[in-house]
Design a binder for these strands. Structure first.
Lengths: 198, 198
DNA sequence: GTCTATAGTGCGATAGAC
DNA sequence: GTCTATCGCACTATAGAC
């Protein structure tokens, strides 16, 4: 019974099932470990806390995102560099992940504690992207704004992706979001600004 | 000794001083209450927890933001409506608030616990803005994107405002940020998109 | 593991404003 | 007297020191 492979994966799967069945709060770490054929102690050897079992994937996500940004054309405008990173995530959020992502999102939105953790992950994604841009000699404030904008685009894309039914639509939705953003800015009349400047 | 006016204000001032002097973790609620001439118990009558003493202002901020959005031209494009809300915050972040905002920001960035709380406040600001836009018949996904973008602009503006030395520069910086954002989007070449579409 | 310090809560008592 | 902000005490929970 011991030393079955992929303890982390089994714990994640068990946690997702139990959270979906009974809710996050009503599930104990012992329940999760039990279903995975492991002990409470082993759970905490792999995850720092109960929440973290839902967020391990975001580490590899961040790596893929940053790697793609690093590989982007050095002459690319800042926002393009970030979007190249988001594009790379389309490979991670493929059709096979759609159902998983939906279930996970439903759990997260049901619990403020988890929602907070997600905000933190998005913020660190943005901070890392800004840092990468700064390495490319993009001025700090511009880097921050471009990074935040890119992460917004990612978040909007992800949200729409799980809200609709085509599991393969991530990349298409990403471009829809980019078009929406462009038109939002394009329709923004700067006479709102100039009026306020006088 | 009892019944001195403005208990909340005194508690906020004491907290800010002590956090700046000794750090957030090294300050106990009893210390704060003591300096304000009150007791620990009274502190918790006014604030749900220790962090909240640094965030009460954000409630009135949210109200001013939403009120300005409500008052905006009904025909205005979505992003303009949100920016009208941000413009209104220039009145709150006037010169007299500059030093306070700087001190507060330094404290918040020194403690992850506080940083989280700030992320949550920004997220609820975005959610409220999106809700207001939806009331104006802006489609949900567009509303979310416009709201997030506006809150980003606010955050970038605020960050630059406290990083520089002119206490009256909030509105000017806001327009700088808007120009930066426009140019970021303008320089974004959509052949990145079309290439990925093929 | 124990021990300590602190966050945070419930409830009843008290001091002052009216 | 009423009303309410403040207070005092006893409690639980938890994080860290040892």
């Amino acid at each position: 019974m011991r030393w079955q492979p992929d303890a982390v994966g089994r714990l994640q799967a068990s946690a997702l099932e139990l959270f979906a069945e009974r809710g996050y709060d009503a599930t104990t770490v012992a329940d999760i470990a039990g279903r995975a054929g492991l002990t409470r102690r082993t759970f905490f050897r792999h995850f720092t806390d109960k929440r973290e079992v839902l967020f391990v994937g975001s580490e590899q996500l961040l790596q893929a995102f940053l790697a793609a940004m690093e590989a982007a054309d050095l002459d690319a405008p800042p926002l393009d560099t970030v979007i190249v990173g988001v594009e790379a995530l389309a490979d991670i959020f493929g059709p096979e992940r759609h159902q998983f992502a939906r279930t996970r999102a439903a759990i997260i939105s049901s619990c403020p504690e988890l929602h907070e953790r997600e905000l933190i992950k998005l913020a660190s994604m943005s901070a890392a992207a800004a840092e990468t841009l700064r390495t490319r000699r993009v001025p700090g404030p511009v880097a921050t704004l471009a990074a935040d904008t890119g992460v917004n685009v990612f978040h909007a894309t992800f949200t729409r992706w799980i809200a609709q039914d085509d599991p393969a639509a991530f990349r298409r939705i990403l471009h829809e979001v980019l078009r929406t953003l462009s038109s939002l800015i394009a329709h923004h009349r700067s006479d709102t600004d100039t009026a306020a400047l006088t």
